[in-house]
């Protein structure tokens, strides 16, 4: 199994990556820290899982060289599961990238990261309903302190492709 960590710049992908794989990639509090991908491994239930820390990108339409790396990585990993890391305090723009990746047919799981920041800003997200509408696992996480990471890992194993048409139907319910 192969997992790609994707999301906007500076949402905590590298922090999550270090947490998952025990690797040491540089993490900082500014966008554009990761400019190339890094591979790492973690063991989940006896299985070796390859995890890839991908540079941040706003969409699948690359604007700079680091974003090109990200999009190329996605397209070269047809068999991968994508964990989309979203800044929970800016959920809408994060969902844009999520939908793009879902439309391309990748199985997706969502980490609503920086959950603590969203709480500070008094933003409330109905995770259960979000999960029902999108049809993919959604887990709230705070990568810096490690909250939600275990759940994210176990839930991301069971994810499958979803159709956008179904999302349209479910959102009207």
């Amino acid at each position: 199994m192969k997992i790609l960590l994707m999301g906007h710049p500076n949402v905590g992908k590298s922090v999550l990556f270090n947490r998952l794989t025990g690797a040491n990639v540089i993490e900082s509090n500014y966008p554009g820290t990761t400019i190339d991908y890094t591979k790492g491994y973690m063991r989940v239930g006896g299985e070796e899982v390859e995890v890839i820390d991908v540079p941040g990108t706003f969409s699948l339409d690359p604007k700079d060289k680091a974003e090109e790396v990200a999009v190329k990585m996605l397209h070269e990993s047809r068999d991968a599961t994508v964990i989309c890391v979203i800044d929970a305090s800016k959920i809408e723009r994060g969902l844009y990238l999520v939908l793009e990746i879902i439309e391309e047919g990748y199985p997706v799981a969502i980490a609503l990261n920086m959950w603590d920041v969203a709480e500070d800003k008094n933003i409330k997200i109905d995770v259960v309903n979000l999960e029902r509408i999108l049809g993919v696992p959604v887990v709230s996480t705070t990568a810096i302190s490690g909250e939600g990471i275990k759940e994210l890992v176990s839930r991301s194993r069971g994810t499958a492709q979803v159709e956008v048409d179904d999302i349209f139907e479910r959102v009207e319910d």
Binding site: N122, I123, K124, N129, L130, E172
Partner: peptide, 19 residues
Amino acid sequence: RWDLIDKISKKTVTFGEYK
């Protein structure tokens, strides 16, 4: 895509008072 996101966020996100 943005329309869909709009619909999703209306159903799932509430922005409380910001201090």
